[in-house]
Amino acid sequence: MIDFFIGLFMASFLIVLFSGRLYRLIFWYAFNSLALGVITILVGVEHIDNALVISGGLTLILKAGVIPFVLKNISQRFNLIREINPTVPIHYSIILIPAIIIFTLYLAEPMSSMIGVNSNYIAISISSFFLALILMIEHKSVAPKIIAFLMMENALFLLGTTATKGMPMFVELGIFFDVMMAIVIINLLFKEEHVK
């Protein structure tokens, strides 16, 4: 079951890299967060770890629900440009992205063998981290870069969940708090630009 959701998590990363519309990007971010939330809950249930189940639940509510809603709201309120074509042409991306995935899987192999548990998941979360970086680089406008930042945070959350079977609860709550603060700041920045 976890494998299935990890697959969905990775697939949503691949789709966003080829997306040219902002709402679609927000939708796939929500989907990515949904997969992450379910993975966290499943890992928590497997290891009988209530903290992981709670943070999985929080991921579902905040990252798959509240944040995409706020982002969509921001984009409507401030009339953000919805057509966001990647600067890297798609035919290059088709070659580049698998190359990055293979490279990161290779890179992560010694690490995965050391951690032992869920080794493939660690490799996938590291690949996702690099893919989020690519997403950040390949767009010129700010909105996709924000989504890339949030997806990068998702990749790290997955790494924390799979490599360490979850970080201490207060750290995870702190990370949630920081993500929410980032959203507030982003909203403020757009508001300032809109007022100007």
Partner: peptide, 8 residues
């Protein structure tokens, strides 16, 4: 963890 949260 707290170090990172404060820095962020």
């Amino acid at each position: 963890g707290i170090y990172w949260i404060g820095l962020e």
